[in-house]
Computed example of a mutant assay.
Amino acid sequence: MTTPVLSGIHHIKIPVTDLARSVAWYGQVFGFQTTIEFPDADGVARGVAGTAPGLGETMIAFRVNPTAAEGCQGFDPVSFAVDGKDDIEAWAARLDELGVRRSPVIEASIGWLLVFDDPDGLTLHLYSWAEHGIDQSHRPGYGRPAAH
């Protein structure tokens, strides 16, 4: 049987403790704009989804779930892509301007990387498509070609 083909990522869903705070933060940092609200039976919206510049059709969704948000602290489920090192450095300057604590620019497994946390402590990555050409495979935690 042939495996059907995927056509991209529809959305990523991020658990949050405070929906308004997260929407404001992602709006300030990434330009997130809410396009859909998800009200519970009591009529209160405890989830939203929307868009951010550069993500094309892929949406970001947020759902109030304090237990999941706490469990995800320090975890990095998504890396947002940028083109190259200049873009990583521009993002570093932008995060500094916003007062968002961040890592230095890292020469990661393949490209350049910037690491920072959202308001709930979820670790976010900005990773470049451009490769730096440095072999990091000898370093613990860095990628290496998979053995087949």
Score class of each variant (00 low, 15 high):
F30P: 06
A52L: 15
I88Q: 07
Q28W: 06
Q73M: 13
P77F: 14
I14N: 04
F62Y: 10
E70F: 05
V48D: 02
C72H: 12
A49I: 00
G47N: 10
A68W: 07
V64I: 12
F38I: 00
I12P: 01
L6H: 11
I12G: 11
V78D: 02
P4M: 04
S79W: 03
L6I: 12
A69Q: 09
I14R: 06
A52P: 09
T51A: 12
R63T: 11
V29K: 02
E70K: 14
K13S: 13
I88E: 08
P4N: 08
G74V: 11
S22N: 12
A49E: 02
Q73W: 01
T17N: 15
V23G: 06
G31F: 08
Q28Y: 00
R46D: 03
I36F: 15
V44W: 03
F32E: 03
E89Q: 14
G71L: 13
F75D: 11
I9W: 00
T67M: 10
F38N: 01
H10D: 15
D40C: 05
W25C: 04
P39I: 01
R63N: 11
G54Y: 03
T35S: 14
G47W: 10
P15E: 10
A24N: 07
I36H: 15
E89G: 00
G71A: 14
G43P: 04
G31V: 09
G54K: 06
V5E: 13
V29R: 06
G43L: 02
V78I: 13
P15Q: 06
Q28F: 01
T35A: 12
G31A: 04
I60W: 08
A49L: 00
F62L: 14
I36D: 15
T34C: 06
L19K: 01
C72P: 00
R46S: 01
E70R: 15
P39A: 03
A61L: 07
D87C: 06
V5Y: 04
V64W: 01
V5A: 14
I9G: 01
V16I: 08
D18P: 05
F80C: 06
Y26Q: 10
V78S: 04
G27H: 05
T67Y: 03
G27F: 09
V44L: 14
S22I: 07
G43R: 07
P77W: 10
I12S: 08
D18M: 05
I12E: 04
F38K: 02
S7L: 08
I60N: 07
N65F: 03
E89M: 09
A45I: 08
T35C: 06
I60R: 10
P66G: 12
A24G: 03
A61E: 15
T58M: 15
A45M: 04
H11Q: 14
T51D: 09
G8A: 07
A49R: 05
F30I: 04
V82N: 13
P4E: 09
L55K: 10
A20W: 00
D83E: 15
V16P: 02
L19E: 08
